[in-house]
Amino acid sequence: MFAFIVRRILQAVVVMAVISCIGFAIKHSFGDPVRELSGMTVSAQERERLREELGLNDPFLVQWGRFLKGAVHGDLGMSYLYKKPAMEIILGKAPATMELVIAASVIILILSVPIGIYAAVRPRSWLSRFFMGVSVIGVSIPVFLTAILLISIFSVQLGWLPSFGRGNELTPLFGGAWMSGFFTWDGITHLVLPALSLSSIMLPLFIRLIRAEMKETLEAEYVKFARAKGLKPWRVLVVHAFKNTLLPVITVGGVQLGIMIAYTVLTETVFQWQGMGFMFLEALQRSDVSLMSAYLVFVGFVFVVVNTVVDIVYGLVNPMVRIAGRK
């Protein structure tokens, strides 16, 4: 198992290097830090001197090496929009996005597992057909449409939930580095609609995945044998069948979690949620290439970490992987 973890982490490091290369290439080819640093009035010679000073005339690989070295130390360059280190901006915005993703994941988990299992066990029931029908519709509606629909129903018509922002009652955690909306009623009501619309893309997918996997494992010989052993029905379902569907669900789940971070750009924009996604769109509009590439590298990093953790958890659930790693 230890060797397996080490191997998996090494792979993650390689992937990170590639991501940083792409992030840097974008910055290298589209951004002009000299223009960003200096005004229009600076002369051509002055610019050339500045370029030399900043090392912008060095070969690509040398510059990438410098970028990497900075990145390892948490330095992803300066945001010219905010006139602050990009990393500082991102870290300030990350908690809002993380809370949104966590809330959406919780919604997905709480709903998809029981619905998926139910739809697999009773595929012909009226309720299963209803869930499957809704999930087809759910997959095909774009996130921003879902978001606008939710706002018009729950904010405009019913007036139950706020439609934008994170509210004014955030709780400071870790000495104020993380402003959390999880601990006040106001914070949670602000979270409901954005989290629902963010989960709307993945939820149908997970329900269908769990249902399909569950249906397959329910046909397996070991499930029949578990029944023939006279186990209680819930134990056959949860311990024997569901534990086996967990493996593919964890794998897909890890990837989807990463993809969900990408979808936060849309959700955060619609709900004016002050997170990384909102910031990214702002950086894009104002052509803050430095901040954009920093965002890409940071999100890539989160994605890789999540996937690595998922793989290790997969290894813990699946005894076959554990054995392979032990050798």
């Binding site: 070991y222 029949k224 044998f225 578990a226 023939a228 052993k229 006279g230 029905p233 311990v239 005894p319």
Partner: peptide, 25 residues
């Protein structure tokens, strides 16, 4: 019926590779 299955009447299946659950000891 559950209390009869695996208790008074046990069953042995054809393929032992498929009969035991791979993720449980």
């Amino acid at each position: 019926m559950r209390q009869v299955r695996g208790n008074r009447i046990s069953m042995i299946f054809q393929d032992p590779m498929m009969t035991l659950n791979p993720v449980l000891t």
